[in-house]
Design a binder for these strands. Structure first.
Lengths: 337, 337
DNA sequence: CTGAAAGCGCTTACAG
DNA sequence: CTGAAAGCGCTTACAG
């Protein structure tokens, strides 16, 4: 491996000068600089980043924890984080925790030892018990995509999930729906609360018995929950699924029970997952600014790196938006004719 | 930050001894070791990985290039790679290239400078032009998930895609299909070739006019291609989609043209993507051992790290399997009654 | 079983 | 504008 010293000898200067030229800093005469650059070229010199890191105390790498990479929501976060890092010349160290707290802890310990300059934790509940370990971390830490029990020790950039639920509820209210049900994943309490608030504003109640937990966050789970909801109260005219994949199952349940969507049953999803774009009828959903959220979180971290070192401890809420498509319509919307 | 020297002073030994205790190597007396461990505990010492890397020349990090993280196939590769690395105490440095050759090149340059111990490139055509840069890399490089134009400079672990196409073709032949069409993505020539071989074995030809390129790897692209195929030859009884998402579009095209699947039209997909499990009828597909492939590739790299340094330059082909479900049936299968 | 020395390849002040 | 020195925190032989 060719070192800075080799280049220096070749160019007839000292390695300090080579360092200056390579980094484009410090004052170097144009003739000297040219000579150094030529030597770099001839020798095929490339600086040893590890040595640089040891000297500067910065690795130019940022760690990212996500629960998994196979769920599109997190895959988009990964890509956006990488984009921002790339723009700033940083590398991405990825850790997926896969519902495994021990694994999460192990990775955390590994990263803590100076191998990253900052750490972003995206919606990772596997890590929540180990968060105290980070209290004494020597680098900035931020959280994003956090829905419930938001830790207050670190800055958080997330979605206003309560508002998301409210958007869904208000949309159904504006269409005149009164008897409705909710298909929810266990972690989605804020969405459900927001949904209820929209009904409460009109003096209506969404009872606990109308909230059906999906056994798993898949179309099959949504099918099960929707079937249960329809059986519990066959008179409902609309369904709010706190996740698009659950809405997919609800669509199937409507089909099986002979209900036409949206004429007999309106369905509104959540996340506006592009991967569910093939659903028919096209799903009305709540769009989540996932990539913007990830970007804000990384930039917050990177700003802290440039400045004081610790980011301002704040909670930033990104706003979701209602996207109306074909799966929702006015109550009693079936053409009478 | 507390250093090894601090621990040494506290324990009344030299830092070399601390090093030995921390790494669990070298011979240290039990009493001394206990004293050192206590000092580590009290001071909250954690070794500086960067310094260790500079001294040892190993970073215990492996780089992975993938085209994107948002396609499930690659997301699974990412997770499997990370699993294997985790088992061996390595970290994952992730780079997605996103159809951007310049970006790929930039990342490659960044990683080459000693910041990874090995590099795995998964099906990344964005990188193919820059592969020569790696010829002089000081660390082992391997490729996986490569379908066409497999570079022969590096070891490759991939899928036997030709065999995958053959499995699809043979399955349709066994069901008696003779007039068929193929919906293909441009990069999937080997799958198409294998498919044809199955027909050629029986003296049948799948003409070029029966191979329809999908404009994009999405259900919409599959719909377009399938519609074209059905218009070009309304008499076909089966369709092979070289990608499950294309098969999804084909299902829709069958519906639109009033064909019942599998009675009027058999459809076989490729990849056995779990995310397409909601298709109705359930899709017959070719299952790809994605995670096994990723595991083999990383382990090959890790083995090289332990041994000589350069892995044996070989081509390893993992075998796909046919998974029969409800979208394929015997030709002329519509019940007559 | 323990210690003193040299070195990994760079950067950061500080003289000239 | 250029050079000699010290140091980043660890590990690797090598003496004792």
């Amino acid at each position: 491996m060719v070192t800075m010293q080799d280049v220096a000898e070749r160019a007839g200067v000292t390695k300090q000068t080579v360092s200056n030229v390579v980094r484009g800093r410090g004052a170097v005469g144009p003739a000297t600089a040219a000579r150094v650059r030529a030597a770099v070229e001839e020798l095929g010199y490339t600086p040893n980043l590890v040595a640089r890191s040891l000297a500067t105390g910065a690795t130019r790498a940022v760690g990212l924890f996500v629960p998994t990479a196979t769920v599109p929501f997190y895959a988009h976060i990964v890509e956006e984080v990488e984009d921002v890092l790339d723009e700033h010349g940083y590398h991405l160290l990825l850790c997926t925790t896969r519902l495994d707290g021990e694994r999460a802890k192990r990775h955390l310990a590994g990263l803590t030892s100076r191998s990253v300059d900052a750490l972003l934790i995206a919606g990772d509940r596997d890590l929540i018990d180990h968060l105290p370990l980070l209290a004494e971390a020597s680098f900035p830490v931020a959280l994003c995509a956090w829905e419930t029990d938001t830790p207050d020790r670190f800055p958080v950039v997330t979605i206003d999930y309560e508002r998301a639920g409210h958007l869904a509820g208000r949309h159904l209210r504006e269409l005149g729906h009164e008897r409705v049900a909710v298909l929810a994943s266990p972690d989605h309490a804020p969405r459900v609360a927001g949904f209820r608030r929209a009904f409460a504003a009109d003096g209506l109640t969404v009872p606990d018995t109308a909230v059906h937990l999906a056994p798993e966050p898949t179309p099959a789970g949504g099918f099960t929950a929707a079937t249960a909801a329809l059986a519990a109260d066959p008179g409902i005219t609309a369904l709010f699924a706190t996740h698009d994949v659950l809405a997919l199952g609800a669509l199937e349940a409507a089909r099986v029970t002979g209900r036409s969507v949206p004429h007999d049953l309106s369905i509104v999803g959540h996340d506006d997952n592009p991967e569910t774009g093939l659903a028919r009828p096209a799903l009305t959903s709540i769009a989540i600014p996932t990539r913007e959220m990830a970007r804000e979180a990384v930039e917050l971290l990177l700003r802290a790196l440039g400045a004081s070192g610790t980011p301002a401890n704040s909670l930033q809420l990104l706003r979701p938006e209602l996207v109306v498509r074909d799966s929702t319509g006015p109550v009693g919307g079936r053409p009478v004719r």
